[in-house]
Design a binder for these strands. Sequence first.
DNA 1: CACCAGGCAAGCC
DNA 2: GGCTTGCATGGT
Length: 290
Amino acid sequence: MKIKEKNSDLIISGAEDFEPEHIFDCGQCFRWEHISEKKYFGIAFGRALLLEKYGDDLIFYNTDMADFERIWYNYFDFGRDYKKMKNALSKDPVLQQAISYGEGIRILRQEPFETLISFIISASNNIPRIKGIINRLCENFGEKNMYMGKEYYTFPDAKKLSALSLDNLAVIRAGFRDKYILSAAKGVLSGETDLDKISRLSAADAKTELMKLSGVGNKVSDCILLFGMGKHESFPVDVWIKRIMEYCYFDGERQSIEKISELACRKFGEYGGFAQQYLFFWARENKIGI
DNA sequence: CACCAGGCAAGCC
DNA sequence: GGCTTGCATGGT
């Protein structure tokens, strides 16, 4: 991978296993917007970014090497050997097919607090509405910044959210999740919930800590571990994953979530999270198992 | 109208 | 322990 600075843009060549459509539509993030054919606009770590896939190159508009190294390199998981992971998972014929469909997926390393709140919102919800609620959360309570002549809003921090009442929060129309959002924010602000410390625990111990939070159960905690804490062995089992796993590995017979998790752990091990994302994207886009 | 959405907590037995 | 039910809101 080579990076050139040109005017105020970065041209990244030789970045393999990177397809914006796969990355941003596989359900791991909610703040990336499809602008045009190959352009996506998103916000992370307080920064906005317009990026474009241009042939084999990636263009990161209006940014610099300092921000690339500080934010985007880790956010886009550029340090990982995706070939090695794909080779390991491809030994399974189901995964081989799912990978060939979503070959450009990467798992983003997102901010723990944003991931926590976002996946609390995700419970019993659908993706378009999750995005809508998060947009309203940021527009009402985040900080306004400018990027390429356009205003954008950062994800509000724990302090800002903790100061809100349920009535204040009603504008985002989060439904019954509103009280969980406030409670989680207050825990983080007080230090009772130390997300950085939790990130450094083993996946199992971190999960135990996260599940102490109201509104964070088995599936939501796995998503926080996977997308916000770098625990790539986590395999979140939602309704889609449950269906496709039953269809592909259990002859279509209904299974408990525990049985599905056990099989995923055995089959995918340290790469469980990647397997989950390939399966999720493949199943949803092709309506497999429905 | 019923049913569902990247579930969870609380209340039952 | 496991199982059932209510939950806000919006889309089909």
